[in-house]
Design a protein around this nucleic acid. Structure first.
Length: 480
RNA sequence: UCCUCCUUAGCUCAGUUGGUUAGAGCAUCUGACUGUUAAUCAGAGGGUCGCCCGUUCAAGUCGGGCAGGGGGAGCCA
């Protein structure tokens, strides 16, 4: 029976002393043949286990190595040393799992994030990744909590989809047909997917939005939160081939309601982690500050991670239209001095990363919601504005990350929607089921998608998206 | 996919104008010490210099190709 153990977090956070306790965990360091720093993942703090001299057989002593898993029974006492309030004076120690010190790759020292990414199966056991993934958990929990409080229904949209018309990105094909050339063919030489498992061509989902809209036309307010797949050859610090996305969809909701919800949502989940993960956030904030010291003064950020999060939670996001953004950028000294690689000259161009960064990091210095983009650069389902040029889209740009949310009011008018689909060469037959929502009881509605990993990046301050998901998938990489 | 930088011990990195036996810190092992906080001190072991081809009397060092990694861009969340 193992449930007699106490989690280390409980022992450390309580002021109680002089009681017997059983803890289990993994050895971080063993100093002086006397002091074990033991961690069980419940907190970033280690408990100090004190081993009396001569208490253990020499053979057992040798098995207490970095990475080994042990069970300790002992007395929790006020610490005799500095550095911790309480410590566990061992009465017995049992090695549950050995760890060969010559082979275990984690050492009690700083490792590079690139090295730890190569041993992602073990990096959970480091302070940094312990903090990151506890925060990731809290964010996921807070997301469900936020929507549940507001009466949203959590909808599970399919991971395998038959439609390839959504246009959100390159898709991964799902098939059981052989790849050796023996797959059944049509007369014209193309693969005959009628013979495939599903009787048609199928892919991994790139978005649950269209299915989400179907559910919103019954429940009013719904959200999805699940894995999403993009087969884009993207090699950046903010793209993954497999990532998690949150997509709320609300009936009786326009662009402004949509923005209000998105802003409240982001603030809520950040506030939740600030309240529930103080220790981990403080650790990551400290870690970043040390990293910043390596950089030249000019590149250092003005705010610490903790300050940045507090700032986002306590200030309104800046809301401007695409047209206003273009004006600001065109009139900026940056543009006049030709410091942009792509100069802003005319209305209608898509904004480059450098422009978004300028708006967010230099001009407003806070999250910015950009609205009403030209219809040419946005998706077919976005509601057309009366000016005939723009659509009711909104993107939320976060400092350091860029686009964190993309959303819109949806085009609920059947004629306008089908007209736009034809203009953009999207086959209406394949999405007939989607168009049914516009045929039977359509209503104004809106929603957005938030990239979960980008949110985790923002909250933890981690620079590379590959370090905020346990086992990242990206071009040429699918280990573990 | 494009641009750019990088690849030397388990990890993080030095390595001179090409020159004979490739170094350091940490980690590991052995010993000492024992209220330590990434303990300390002494000693030891540890290398296909990413891979292939070329230039040269001689390549970790120069050139080409490939692979892997970092940063930036595009695509986007």
């Amino acid at each position: 029976m193992f449930n007699t153990r106490i989690k280390i977090k409980e022992v450390i956070q309580s002021d109680r002393v002089d009681y017997s306790a059983t803890v289990m965990g993994w050895v971080r360091t063993f100093r002086n043949n006397q002091f074990i720093a033991l961690n069980d993942g419940s907190t970033n703090q280690n408990i100090q286990v004190v081993v009396a001299l001569g208490m253990l057989e020499e053979t057992t002593l040798k098995r207490i190595t970095t990475g080994a898993c042990i069970k300790v029974v002992g007395e929790v006492i006020a610490s005799l040393g500095k550095g911790q309030k309480v410590e566990l004076k061992a009465t017995s120690i049992e090695v549950l799992g050995d760890s060969d010190a010559e082979k275990f790759p984690l050492q009690p020292k700083k490792h590079s994030l690139e090295f730890l990414r190569e041993i992602a199966h073990l990096r959970f056991r480091t302070n940094t990744f312990g903090a990151v993934f506890r925060i990731r958990h809290s964010l996921a929990f807070a997301i469900h909590s936020f929507f549940n409080q507001k009466g949203f229904v959590y909808v599970h949209t399919p991971i395998i989809t038959a439609s390839d018309a959504e246009g959100a990105g390159e898709m991964f094909r799902v098939t059981t047909l052989p790849l050796d050339g023996s797959a059944p063919k049509n007369d014209d030489g193309s693969i005959n997917f009628k013979e495939d498992f599903f009787g048609k061509s199928t892919n991994l989902t790139v978005s649950g939005q269209l299915e989400g809209e179907l559910a919103a036309m019954a429940f009013g307010d719904v959200y999805t939160f699940g894995p999403t797949f993009r087969a884009e050859n993207s090699n950046t610090t903010r793209h993954l081939a497999e990532f998690w996305m949150i997509e709320p969809e609300m009936a009786f909701c326009d662009l402004e309601d949509n923005m209000n919800l998105a802003e409240a949502f982001i603030k809520y989940i950040i506030r939740y982690t600030m309240e529930h993960n103080q220790e981990d956030l403080a650790f990551l904030s400290q870690r970043l500050e040390e990293e910043e010291k390596q950089k030249p003064q000019s590149e250092r950020s003005e705010m610490s991670l903790l300050e940045k999060l507090a700032f986002v939670v306590n200030n309104d996001f800046e809301r401007i239209t695409y047209t206003e953004a273009i004006d600001i950028l065109r009139e900026s000294n940056h543009n006049k001095k030709k410091k942009f690689q792509y100069l802003i000259d005319k209305w209608g161009i898509d904004l480059q990363s450098e422009h978004e960064r300028y708006l967010v990091e230099k001009h407003f210095k806070k999250p910015v919601i950009l609205t009403n983009y030209p219809k040419e650069i946005k998706a077919f389902y976005m509601r057309q504005n009366d000016d005939g040029k723009t659509v009711a889209a909104m993107d939320i740009l976060a400092p350091g990350i860029g686009e964190i949310v993309g959303g819109s009011q949806r085009e609920e008018r059947l004629d306008k929607l089908t007209e736009r689909m034809k203009e953009m060469h999207i086959p209406t037959e394949e999405l007939d089921w989607y168009l049914d929502t516009r045929r039977f009881g359509a209503c104004p509605h809106a929603g957005f998608g938030l990239g979960f990993e980008r949110m985790v990046q923002f909250v933890t301050g981690m620079g590379n998206i590959r370090d905020v998901i346990p086992f990242p998938r990206y071009p040429k990489s699918a280990s573990f």
